[in-house]
Amino acid sequence: MAEEVKLFGAWGSPSTRRVEIALKLKGVKYEYIEEDLKNKSPLLLTYNPVHKKVPVLLHNGQPIAESLIILEYIDDTWQQQGPPILPKDPYQRSKARFWAKFLDDKFAPQIWKACWGEGEEREKGIEEATESLKLLENEIKGKKLFGGDNLGLVDIVAHFMAYWSEILQQLLGLDFFTREKYPNLFNWGDEFCNCSFVKENLPPKHELVLIFKGLTNSYTSSA
C-alpha cells in the first residue's frame, strides 16, 4: 500500500517552506494543498483544531501540526531516506533543538517587532534582534552551515533569515541586518540558498514583495 503524504500550507508562509525543504531533502513524495488563510478550509480546521494554522502534514490520515514537530516527525519517519535532519549524537541533537527553538520563540518575534512595530516598540525590536544576530553570527563562525558540512534542522528553521529578512528590510528602509555587520551569517545564507532543493522551494522575491507590501498597507491603514 502506497503512503499518503499531504501538506496543507500557504505560499507565503516561511513555516510551510521549511517543511517542503525537509520533505525534498528526504526525498518524500507528497501532495501540496494551498490554504487561503483568510478563508480556512474545513479540512485544515479539522486537522489542526487547536491552533488552526498551517502547516499541517497528513501522513496516512494522521495529522501532525507545528512546523518544528513536523520536521522531527519527517526525520524519524523516513530515517532510511536522504540525509538526517537532526544529528545522531545526543549532545549535538540537543544543541540543534536549542537553536531551532531560539529562532522560533525569540528571534522571529524580535524581527516581527523590528519590522512592524512603531516608534519605541520598533526601536526595541531592532535592539533585541541585533543582540540575537550577534549570538547567531558567533554560532555560525567557522562553519559552512549550522549543521556543519551538512544541512540540518537549524539551517531549515533559519531559512527566513537567509532569504526573507533582506527583502523585508529593503521594503521597510531598515539596515540593522547587513553583510558588512554579519559576514558569517550572509556567507551561510548564500551557501544555504544555493542548495538545489532549497532554491527550487524559495518563492520569487518580487512576489514576496507584493505580499509584504500588502502587510505594510494593512498595518498603516489600521494605525
Rank of each mutant, 00 (worst) to 15 (best):
F177K: 01
L210I: 14
F192H: 02
E207A: 13
N201V: 15
N184W: 04
S222M: 09
K205L: 14
F177Q: 02
L174M: 10
D190I: 07
P183T: 01
Q170N: 14
T178Q: 00
G214R: 07
L171E: 13
S218N: 09
K213I: 13
W188Q: 01
R179N: 06
L171H: 13
N184L: 04
L185C: 02
C193Q: 07
Q170M: 09
L215I: 15
L185H: 00
K213Q: 15
E191M: 00
H206Q: 11
R179K: 12
Q170W: 10
G173T: 14
F177M: 07
F176K: 01
Q169N: 09
E180H: 01
G214W: 08
L185P: 03
E180K: 03
L202A: 09
F212Y: 14
D175T: 03
K181T: 01
R179F: 03
E180Q: 02
K181N: 03
K205W: 13
G189S: 15
R179V: 07
T216L: 15
L208D: 12
R179A: 09
E200T: 11
G173S: 07
L210C: 07
N184H: 03
V209S: 10
V198F: 05
T178M: 01
P204D: 10
S196L: 08
I211Q: 11
S221H: 08
W188P: 02
C193D: 03
T220P: 05
Y219E: 08
F197G: 06
P203N: 11
S196K: 07
G173H: 06
L210V: 14
T216H: 11
E180S: 03
P203M: 12
P204H: 07
W188S: 01
T216R: 14
L172R: 12
F177S: 02
L208P: 13
L210P: 05
F197I: 06
K213N: 14
K205N: 11
G189F: 04
S196N: 07
V198S: 05
S196Q: 08
K181P: 02
Q170E: 15
K181R: 04
C193E: 05
D190M: 04
I211D: 11
L202T: 11
N184P: 02
T216C: 13
E200G: 04
N201A: 09
K213T: 12
G214I: 08
N201D: 12
Y182L: 01
G173Q: 07
Y182F: 12
L185N: 00
P203K: 10
P183S: 00
L174G: 05
H206W: 08
L172N: 09
Y182V: 04
K205G: 12
L185I: 03
C195K: 06
W188C: 01
P204N: 08
G173C: 11
K205D: 12
N201Q: 12
S221Y: 03
K205M: 15
I211E: 14
Y182S: 01
L185K: 00
